[in-house]
Write a protein that binds this DNA or RNA. Structure first.
Length: 283
DNA sequence: ATAGGCGCCTGCTGGC
DNA sequence: TGCCAGCAGGCGCCTA
């Protein structure tokens, strides 16, 4: 799915097209998405002005004037685009907001319907939404000491830790694998077995990989497109994700793929070799 | 606390 | 060519 870089790209590209415009109509598809799926969007949003558009983890938050907001998640196959109203609507388009001024529509398309769109009447109700409220810090704002301590407090694998949105927000399967490769750490290594310097290396690797991916407008494997409808380019930079059997770009060892934390996990068995003697806890 | 499994959905791919 | 199992970028729920 869209992970942090993809969602960031969508938000950046939609912002200039959405800010200060109002919803003038809503069309809702017949089939529901996840969570509390609204069927009566019209009375909630028609006439509301889009004041702010931002990202939190993999969530898109749209503040409407005076408190209410729209919160969207793209799931695995979600696409959010602004499109001329006359453009043919593709199948699996579940929400269509007419925009004023102009003859354009904000469209939410999601083939697998793992995404969701939620309306909160005020900030307090949004703050009670657990998926947002319990989200960990943004990767770019991680306090190094706090990250080190939280990582070293868990016996889970580094892969599982990176995918846990409570620990750090926005990392998914692709960027977890790419970050672990960049940090030269094995995905199976336990958080509690990391030396402080290694925890810090991982933090920097996550930031570096995500930053580079945002610069390339995210990764398009199949469904992902940015807010302007174009595919991303970071899939060309993958070092391990989806590279099973291909030679590692550093050492030529074939990239391995295992199942970890329930997900396909790619790594270089040589560059990301576990240490012979794990560092002592507390050093 | 946390790992693992499943379910939610649809569409594509690879093997037979 | 056709069929079917397996798999896919997420997340939440359940069990052990």
């Amino acid at each position: 799915m869209p992970e942090l870089p993809e969602v960031e790209t969508v938000v950046r590209e939609l912002r200039p097209r959405l800010l200060d415009r109002r919803f003038q109509s809503v069309r809702v598809g017949r089939r529901p998405l996840r969570h509390r799926w609204q069927t009566r969007w019209g009375p909630l949003v028609i006439g509301q002005r889009i004041e702010r558009l931002h990202r939190r983890g993999k969530w898109i938050v749209m503040d409407l004037g005076g408190g209410p907001c729209l919160v969207l998640h793209l799931g695995m196959t979600g696409q959010l685009t602004v499109t001329p109203a006359e453009t043919t609507r593709r199948d699996h388009t579940h929400l269509i907001f007419g925009l004023d001024p102009g003859n354009e529509e904000l469209r939410f398309r999601d083939v697998r319907r793992f995404g969701c769109a939620l309306y909160f009447p005020d900030a307090a109700s949004r703050e009670r939404f657990p998926s947002l409220a319990e989200l960990g810090p943004e990767p770019f704002d991680l306090d190094p000491a706090c990250w080190r301590d939280r990582l070293r407090a868990t016996e889970r694998s580094l892969k599982a830790a990176l995918l846990d949105q409570h620990l750090v927000a926005g990392v998914g399967n692709i960027y977890a694998d790419e970050s672990l490769f960049a940090a030269r750490l094995p995905p199976t290594r336990r958080g509690c077995d990391l030396a402080p310097a290694e925890a810090d290396r991982l933090r920097r690797a996550v930031v570096a990989v995500l930053t580079q991916a945002i610069e390339r407008r995210g990764s398009s494997i199949r469904d992902y497109i940015g807010g302007n409808g174009e595919k991303g380019g970071f899939q060309k930079e993958f070092r391990v994700y989806g590279q099973t059997g291909l030679p590692c770009r550093r050492c030529q060892t074939p990239i391995a793929c295992i199942r970890l934390a329930g997900r396909a996990t790619h790594f270089c068995p040589h560059c990301q070799k576990p240490p012979l003697v794990p560092p002592q806890r507390g050093n």
